[in-house]
């Protein structure tokens, strides 16, 4: 009891804690004041074209993809310029550390094949993590333009707010189909919150799995899928298993794509909703969570890719029916 009381008196008397308390209260009040002014969070499953009358392929996710590319290439060039044989320092040191850590991870899983896998694995990791974090930069997803030429955008915004306040949090997931309303389109969108990017990566990863499998085992690799040679009951089982194996390759593509997309997209929606509910303070823990998720998803994508690469290069003849 005493401790609780001293905690509260401390909040008022200790100048530092008092300032923090006042700040928090002000931010909470500010959140409450801002609340009615805020537009309902922008949620769209698909990446949208930035230009209203421009090409449909020029989406915000594509633009951000290019920005991520540029960031990565600039990082690479800066690192290369900073490399020196002596004591490493600065950016080059950091990137060396990152590359070395990634290489060790790949090497631990892939062993002697690490050299072949590494460019793919590392690029996946770096591209995905920068993509994930790009969605966390303030302004990405919130700065944009309103499409819907027939009305003054300001009044439309107000109208939207009223609608949002009424409907609480009913998102128009497929907002593009709504007629008559002006539509907000963010300028930037995390590439990993776009299914094109995640599917693209997943397809590349699974394609490379087949490539490495064939390069290691030759035509024998396909016996994994088309195993009709067996006789009797077990032969029939093996041929069915082969078909399952084939299906599972496609399932891997889908799970890769939706895992990454789902995590990042959900994270962005979560942050947007939290910010909408309470502009300050509340989103902070979720922000930390999203930083963690962004890293984990990049890492998981890389790890799984390397694991699939490795298993594809191992002949399945040695251990008959050990499929997964």
């Amino acid at each position: 009891m005493n401790r609780i009381r001293s905690f509260f008196t401390d909040l008022v008397q200790n100048p530092r804690k008092r300032n923090i308390t006042i700040g928090v209260v002000l931010l909470l009040l500010g959140s409450a004041i801002l609340k009615p002014l805020m537009a309902s969070p922008h949620v769209s499953l698909a990446a949208e074209p930035i230009l209203e009358n421009g090409p449909a392929w020029f989406t915000n996710a594509l633009l951000t993809t290019f920005l991520v590319d540029i960031v990565l290439i600039v990082l690479a060039l800066a690192t290369r310029a900073g490399l020196k044989e002596g004591v490493p320092s600065g950016l080059a040191n950091f990137m060396e550390m990152v590359i070395e850590a990634l290489y060790n991870v790949v090497e631990n899983m892939a062993g002697k094949n690490a050299k072949r896998f590494f460019p793919w694995a590392a690029t996946i990791f770096l591209f995905v993590i920068i993509s994930n974090y790009s969605g966390l930069i303030p302004g990405v997803g919130s700065i944009g333009m309103t499409h819907g030429a027939e009305a003054d955008s300001h009044s439309i915004l107000l109208e939207n707010q009223v609608a949002a306040a009424d409907e609480k949090l009913t998102f128009s997931l497929f907002g593009a189909e709504e007629e008559g309303h002006a539509k907000f389109v963010p300028l930037l969108r995390a590439p990993s919150a776009d299914l094109n990017m995640t599917f693209g990566l997943a397809i590349i990863a699974m394609f490379m799995v087949q490539y490495f499998g064939v390069s290691a085992l030759g035509a024998k690799y396909f016996k994994k899928f088309f195993n009709f040679g067996g006789k009797g009951f077990m032969g029939a089982i093996f041929s069915v298993v082969g078909i399952l194996e084939l299906v599972s390759e496609i399932a891997k593509v889908i799970s890769f794509a939706f895992r990454l997309f789902g995590n990042i997209f959900a994270g962005e929606v979560l942050l947007a909703v939290m910010a909408f509910l309470f502009a300050f303070i509340l989103p902070m823990p979720f922000y930390g969570l999203e930083l963690f998720v962004g890293f984990i998803q990049a890492f998981v994508f890389m790890m799984l890719t390397v694991v699939f690469f490795s298993t594809a290069m191992v002949s399945h003849d040695d251990h008959g029916d050990s499929h997964h």
């Binding site: 769209s44 499953l45 698909a46 990446a47 449909a56 392929w57 989406t59 996710a61 594509l62 993809t65 497929f174 590439p191 776009d194 299914l195 094109n196 990017m197 599917f199 693209g200 990566l201 397809i203």
Partner: peptide
């Protein structure tokens, strides 16, 4: 509706 389109996929 999911925003998947061939050209964008290819571009990625």
């Amino acid at each position: 509706q999911l925003g998947i389109s061939g050209p964008l996929l290819l571009s990625q």
